[in-house]
Design a binder for these strands. Sequence first.
RNA 1: GCGAUCGUAGCUCAGUUGGUUAGAGCGCCGGUUUGUGGUACCGGAGGUCGCGGGUUCAAACCCCGUCGAUCGCCCCA
Length: 410
Amino acid sequence: MSKIETPRPVRGTQDIFGAEAEAFAFVVETFERVRKLYRFRRIEMPVFEKTEVFARSLGETTDVVSKEMYSFEDRGGESLTLRPEFTAGIARAFLTDGWQQHAPLKVATHGPLFRYERPQKGRYRQFHQLDAEIIGAGEPQADVELLAMADQLLKELGLADGVTLQLNTLGDGDSREAWRSALVEHFSAVRGELSEDSQERLEKNPLRILDSKDPRDKAHVGTAPMIDQFLSAEARDFFGAVTSGLDAAGVAWTRNQALVRGLDYYRHTAFEFVTDRLGAQGTVLGGGRYDGLMESLGGAPTPAVGWAAGIERLAMLVGDRPNPVLEAVVLVEHEDGLAVANTLLADLRRGGVIADIVASGSVKKRYDRAVKLGPQHILRVNETGYYGISGEGSTDRIVAAINPLPSPRA
RNA sequence: GCGAUCGUAGCUCAGUUGGUUAGAGCGCCGGUUUGUGGUACCGGAGGUCGCGGGUUCAAACCCCGUCGAUCGCCCCA
């Protein structure tokens, strides 16, 4: 008999447990609470889509599409892809499910996403995001509301300081194009002095040279043309309305003219909430306006804004969270008390008391183990039945649960 | 895809210039002190030293390869 080898977990996946899992849950619960305050409607989305949904909307040349997608053929020979982001799928649903009738539509969701990347701190192949989108709203007010929600979420997670909102505008389609060609002209002139990566970016995504970390590039970034010189009057007004709206709402922000977004569909407002506490992965929440996306999926022009936030990254900033309190432990000293203990335990839980049971090992070990669970109270049961409770603080809830009083209206 | 560092018990880690049978703490299981809030003491289980090759009388330790993890580049939340 050869030994059976235990399968290893897949690279870049995580098994989350204990205090970390509690932090993860805290992030999601806080998001759910805040999103309701802003009346974002909960949606559930498929984890996979037809490959074209992502290929067409994100841009064929982006890294995500060209080398990071988990794509496969199903048994019918159709090319499907595990979602690498939320926005494209939501845009597809907006078009195929008739959600236009609800426009302007505020939606929120969260769940796993998949990208074939080299794992490192705060980056995984299966990772999780919170997501919020406003579809069918072209006014700057939508941007303001969306950002205000992000800001409140981070504050309620206790991350008010240490995370800052960086804001930029990419202008409308024409502004962005004019800026882009000016950048290409500027960097082409000094091509030989740029890093190898940036020489390549010059072809694929010149905007990205702006936030290169290479000192050779930084020298020329300082003198590069900035978007403001190319903004149309409309684009300038739009951005002005967003910033003054944020100021009025008490959302702090800083302008970062080098901030660009990787995916093709972004226009106008672009933003990131960043921190310096997560090593290389400083962006904790990012997004922007994507007025061109619907058309790339064959729909009518539809303005929209959205953001996504990495749950793992937020959870790391939040830090480990303790297990929820344990209110009561039922300790059974003798096997003959087991039936009574089970009745007691059921009553406690039905009465809304967080309870657990310890019923094996020597009596000494049982007490040791019960104490180690850190309960507020211990209910003692021996062979003759329940005979006592110990612990500090009020026992009202426990007593009410195990001695249910008849309802006055019954 | 590229680079750096690291792989010893379930976990965190020792292990000397290569030298007997690879250790500790925690955890787990059992026991002792006449059975009631974390004590103390005793005992036990648990290791292909990531895997494969090489050097050597001798390898956890040196060399090569490989797999994995971590961190960084790229990219991104």
